Structures are given as structure tokens and as C-alpha cells.
Computed example of a mutant assay.
Amino acid sequence: MPETATRAGGTGHPGETSPREPVSAARARQLVRAALSVWNLSDLADDGALIVSESVTNAVQHTRRDSIRVVMDRPDRVRARIGVVDFPKARPEREVRGLDDDGGRGLASVGEPAEERGTDPLPWGKRVWAELRKAHG
């Protein structure tokens, strides 16, 4: 069963630990959409769902541990950062796929809507993240 936690102090930074299974991508999309709605960033929901779906799928395929963790942060009122934490320290590699290829489009699709993206090393693994910014207007 997934576990959802918010940081102390009511800062609204949701996270969820899920089993390393393909169905966890659907739950991660729900978490991202809900957090973006609460943060009044609903216009980022489709891009956020794409980012987390591809990131979770990548972690499910390439990690060996039993769980992965989706984390979100709101650096300011117009930006949201979506990350997936897993245990291997190896940095992800971008794989370019054609439109007719089976499977997702991988990290290439994460980079398209993201304003910034990166990988933060952790003592026991890594956090792969992408940041979205609300359009002004």
C-alpha cells in the first residue's frame, strides 16, 4: 500500500513510496495532479503526469529494490519540481525512441515540457527530477 507523507510545518511537499511495479505510475500521476491542483498549478497537470509516469516507469525497469519514491516540491508559486527516488546510483541515460517503438518515450519526453531537469546523487541512490513553470499571462 502506498504511503503518502507531507513535511512537517504544513509546507505541502507531498511524497509517496510505492512498490516497484508498473501500476505505481498511475498512482504517481494521481499524486502529481492532486498536488498541482492544491498549489493552483493545474495547468501543469498534463506535463507533470507525463514526467512522473515516464520517470516511474524508468525506475521500475532499471532498479532492483522493492520500492520507489515520488517526491514533489514547490520552489515558488509558479514552479513545481517532480522527482523519483530510487536506489541505484547510476545516472539515467536518455534514450531516443521513434513514434512507432514499443514502450514509452523515456527521459526524452521528460525533457520536452521541463524547464529544468537533473539528477541529485544521494548516499544510497539518486533523485531524478524535472521542474515545470506556470506560463505567465
Rank of each mutant, 00 (worst) to 15 (best):
E131K: 12
G103P: 04
S55H: 01
R64F: 01
S109I: 10
G83W: 00
D86R: 02
W39M: 01
T63F: 00
G137H: 07
V128W: 00
R117I: 07
V60H: 09
A59W: 00
P121A: 15
E16R: 14
D101H: 10
W39I: 03
P75A: 10
D43G: 11
V71N: 07
S55Y: 00
R81E: 06
R74C: 00
G125W: 03
E95C: 03
G15D: 12
V128K: 00
A25T: 10
R69S: 09
W129M: 02
G12Y: 09
K134S: 08
I51N: 11
L107M: 15
D73S: 11
L31H: 02
R117D: 12
T6D: 09
I68T: 08
W129Y: 08
A35M: 02
W129T: 07
H136D: 08
P123N: 13
S24P: 13
V128T: 13
K89T: 14
P92Q: 05
P14Q: 07
M72R: 00
A90R: 15
E131P: 08
A5P: 12
L41A: 05
G12P: 08
L50S: 06
R7W: 02
G48A: 05
R117F: 03
S18P: 00
T4G: 06
V23I: 07
W124L: 13
G118L: 09
V52A: 01
D102K: 10
E3H: 11
D47M: 04
P2K: 05
W129S: 04
A8T: 15
A114Y: 04
D46S: 09
E131T: 15
R74H: 04
R7G: 12
S42V: 11
V52T: 10
I51E: 08
T119K: 02
